[in-house]
């Protein structure tokens, strides 16, 4: 909870600062854009959070985004599949990738880093091979499907041309609610948190840790798949060699910024989404505050680092205070019980 307040504070700070420096930041158009990008990156960040909670990592997200996006465009434009069939197919592919990762990591005991690093190379290559490395575009034929990524839902009661919710934001909200309920209200979510902190103890408590881990990898890859569909529809022009490149790093950064520990066992969905929002707002701020484009990475890296350092310091302070409080309580207890 405290963690969410911290990262939320950072988000508010960056927003207020940007808004003051350039009031256009809060223009309807810009808010919609930022919300849309936050949603797209939020979807893949929520997915990777599950894997990070198990203490694992998924480096293949960007390549899954690329493969799914390329496959979708290829199936639609080259193979003439119907939109629902193509979307179902690509999501199925991402599900299969998740199952594959999970099985390799749990049954063969391969390291997640290695498995997903190979995935990163493999799926990128597959995307380029299947599409002959050609850029693919949806042109203007799929405006209906593209509404998933660029459509907006007007808010009842507001004027037609004022703020409307981007469809990806609704998709993110649905995914986030499901994810949060899964993590906090189901026994599997609890299992996930427990095994992320101590897999052995979880197993000794009768939890099928392998199954739970596989579920986490499936959630991650399917989220990347959903993200891939949305990214592809959004940019409308897909370069198999480039779509989604490095997005795993953005997703991991958002998750870590949002309070996930790479050691596992820690993380909240709200935090991760706020983390993704911070990253997007930073990009947006750099652009609209006319900060030179080559400073972009430096600024984002510095902000993430500052966030993580602050978090660590706050955590240490909390541990110390807890210890002091407890000792005080124990001494009071001892004093009250005459020996």
């Amino acid at each position: 909870m405290k963690k969410i307040l911290g990262i939320g504070g950072l988000l508010v700070f960056v927003c207020v600062l940007t808004g003051v420096l350039n009031p256009d930041f809060v223009s309807v158009y810009n808010l919609q854009n930022t919300l849309r990008w936050t949603s797209l990156f939020g979807v893949i960040s929520v997915g990777v959070a599950f894997v990070i909670i198990t203490g694992g990592i998924d480096l293949s997200i960007g390549s899954v985004v690329g493969l799914v996006g390329s496959l979708l465009a290829w199936l639609l434009t080259q193979k003439g599949w119907s939109a629902p069939a193509a979307v179902a197919m690509v999501l199925l592919v991402s599900l299969g990738i998740g199952v594959l990762h999970g099985l390799l990591i749990t049954k063969l005991r391969l390291q997640p880093f290695v498995v997903t690093l190979c995935g990163l190379l493999l799926y990128r290559g597959a995307a380029r091979y299947i599409t002959d490395d050609q850029s693919l575009g949806f042109g203007t034929a799929y405006e209906g499907l593209r509404r998933l990524a660029i459509g907006k839902i007007p808010i009842p009661g507001l004027a037609a041309d004022s703020f409307a919710l981007p469809v990806p934001f609704l998709i993110l909200m649905v995914i986030a609610v499901i994810a949060a309920v899964f993590l906090n209200r189901t026994i599997y979510g609890r299992y996930l948190l427990a095994l992320g902190r101590n897999e052995t103890a979880a197993r000794y408590s009768g939890i099928h840790t392998d199954r739970v881990k596989i579920i986490a990898y499936v959630i991650c890859s399917v989220s990347a798949g959903v993200g891939g569909v949305l990214f592809a529809l959004d940019v409308n022009s897909i370069q198999p060699s480039g779509l989604g490149e490095f997005y795993e790093l953005y997703a991991i950064a958002a998750a870590v910024l949002g309070g996930c520990s790479l050691r596992g066992g820690e993380g909240t969905i709200t935090g991760v989404i706020i983390g993704a929002a911070v990253l997007r707002v930073l990009y947006n701020a750099i652009n609209i505050l006319r900060i030179p484009t080559h400073l972009e990475f430096a600024i984002i890296g510095a902000v993430i680092l500052a966030g993580v350092i602050t978090d660590e310091l706050v955590k240490r302070y909390a541990v110390k205070r807890r210890a002091v409080r407890q000792l005080a309580a124990e001494q009071a207890h001892k004093a009250s019980v005459p020996s």
């Binding site: 897909i238 370069q239 490149e245 947006n284």
Partner: peptide
């Protein structure tokens, strides 16, 4: 503005230019 060949960023750059 540069985008390092990331199409999504190219698009976001254009959007942010419209805002700014």
């Amino acid at each position: 503005r540069t985008d390092n060949f990331d199409y999504a960023r190219a698009k976001a750059n254009a959007e942010d230019a419209i805002t700014a």
